[in-house]
Structures are given as structure tokens and as C-alpha cells.
């Protein structure tokens, strides 16, 4: 007899009805949760919807709540969950469109607010590259690993209680560019991140860092941002920009 995993999936149909559906997936056919979902889609129930793309933890599309924790389905090995029963739900703190597909638009809108690109005071025309030492690179390297999967937003208890809070990923992105020696846009970002819905909302539960599949440390970045914001705000009081 073939051994099987039991996938219990939270579903939401077009009418908005929410229910759990259980599928049995042969253990010898799959390795990751995403493979399990694809097996179900191809062999059992083609109406099941979920989002995925790269299958190798690069695109950040397949974020979902697996056994009560936000994870990317492609990099979650079912065997490592140490349970034959796998409970899968859509990410918390996002509006569910259908089954495991959530609306990521508000997340990306927040992301855009922190101006996640290099800002320069000059005209941006150069005849040579902008130099950067390895030490300067390592200042922000960790934060450039973010794949925008949004798991940190689903894990953050403050995003849960205050959906307007910018959240860990946008704030980590702000730090990624502020820490970049080529960037000169800190003062513009501080205007956004130092507001009521910015860094002061973080109460440092550290769950964002715990769930990040890429090892990014948003909680560290937020504390660093507070320090930078304080310095910039203090300098502005004395008329310095």
C-alpha cells in the first residue's frame, strides 16, 4: 500500500464561501508542499488555485500558511514538517481572492511608498561606475536578498492589529537603500518611515525575521531605521539637512 500525506486546504470559492477540503497525496510522488499542490491540481482537483512561478525560492510567489506558519511552498519539504497531516491556508493579513491566492497589491503599494530605489542629488549621468567597497556592500547585502514574498507581513502581529502599518518588508527595503553608500535619499524616506504608521509601530516581536525564507532580518533594520530617523529629525531641528 502506498503511503500518503493528507493535505487539508482552506478554500474560498467565487461566492465567498470558505471551507476546508482534504486531499490524499502519495508520499513517493512529491517532496515539497508546492509539488503536493501541483499533484492535487493535476491529478485530483483542477479547481484548486494557488500562485507559484520559479519553484526555487526566488520569485516569492508561493507564500502561504503551512501548518500554522508562513512559508514558501516551494522550499518547504513535507518530510521536514514531521507530520503526515499538512494544513495549508492563505497568508494572514491579506485579502483572499480565491483558495490560496491573496491580493498582494496593498503590500506592493506600501513597498513603493519607501522609494525602493537609489536616489541621487546629482543628474545621474556618470562616465564611470559609482565605487563601493566590500564593507559598504555588506552593509546592505542581507536586505537586498528580499524576494517580496510578504511572509513577514503575515507573521507580524502589528500588521494584524493595524493594517495601515507599513510593515517589515517595506521598512527593511527602506534600510536597504539608506544603508547603500550610493544613495542620498534618506531624508525623503524618513518622511515616510518616521510617521505614525512607520518604525514607531514596531514592537519588536521579531517574527518577521523568524519566518523570512531568505534570512533577511527586518526587525534589525527597523531598529537601525529608528536611529537614522532620530539623527535626521534632530539635525533638521537645527536647520541641517
Amino acid at each position: 500500500m502506498v503511503e500518503e500525506y493528507e493535505f487539508e486546504i482552506k478554500r474560498k470559492d467565487e461566492s465567498g464561501k470558505v471551507y476546508y477540503q482534504t486531499y490524499r497525496v502519495p508520499k513517493d510522488q512529491i517532496s515539497t508542499v508546492l509539488e503536493g499542490l501541483l499533484y492535487i491540481k493535476e491529478n485530483i482537483d483542477h479547481t484548486l488555485d494557488f500562485r507559484y512561478s520559479c519553484r526555487m525560492e526566488i520569485c516569492g510567489s508561493c507564500g502561504m500558511e503551512i501548518n500554522g506558519k508562513p512559508r514558501t511552498a516551494c522550499s518547504t519539504i513535507v518530510k521536514q514538517l514531521k507530520k503526515d497531516h499538512v494544513k495549508i491556508e492563505p497568508l494572514k493579513h491579506y485579502r483572499v481572492i480565491k483558495d490560496l491566492v491573496v491580493d498582494m497589491d496593498p503590500f506592493f503599494e506600501k513597498y513603493k511608498e519607501v522609494k525602493p530605489y537609489i536616489i541621487r542629488n546629482d543628474d545621474g549621468v556618470y562616465d564611470r561606475e559609482l565605487k563601493q567597497t566590500p564593507e559598504q556592500f555588506y552593509e546592505y547585502a542581507n536586505y537586498s536578498m528580499c524576494i517580496k514574498c510578504g511572509l513577514c507581513m503575515a507573521a507580524c502581529p502589528i500588521v494584524g492589529s493595524d493594517p495601515q502599518y507599513l510593515g517589515p518588508a517595506p521598512l527593511a527595503a527602506a534600510w536597504r537603500f539608506i544603508a547603500d553608500n550610493r544613495d542620498e535619499g534618506a531624508k525623503y524616506r524618513v518622511a515616510v518611515i518616521d510617521g505614525e504608521e512607520g518604525t514607531s509601530r514596531c514592537h519588536f516581536s521579531g517574527e518577521c525575521t523568524e519566518v523570512c525564507p531568505k534570512g533577511v532580518d527586518p526587525s534589525f533594520a527597523i531598529q537601525k531605521l529608528r536611529k537614522v530617523s532620530f539623527k535626521i529629525e534632530l539635525a533638521s531641528l537645527f536647520g541641517r539637512s
Binding site: 494572514k92 493579513h93 496593498p106 494584524g160
Partner: peptide
């Protein structure tokens, strides 16, 4: 960004 109130978990989170 205008937050979506539908997703608010409240202090249970």
C-alpha cells in the same frame, strides 16, 4: 496606503 479593513485580525494577533 488605504488599508483593507477586511484583513484586520485585531489584538488577537
Amino acid at each position: 496606503v488605504e488599508a483593507n479593513k477586511e484583513i484586520k485580525e485585531g489584538i488577537w494577533s
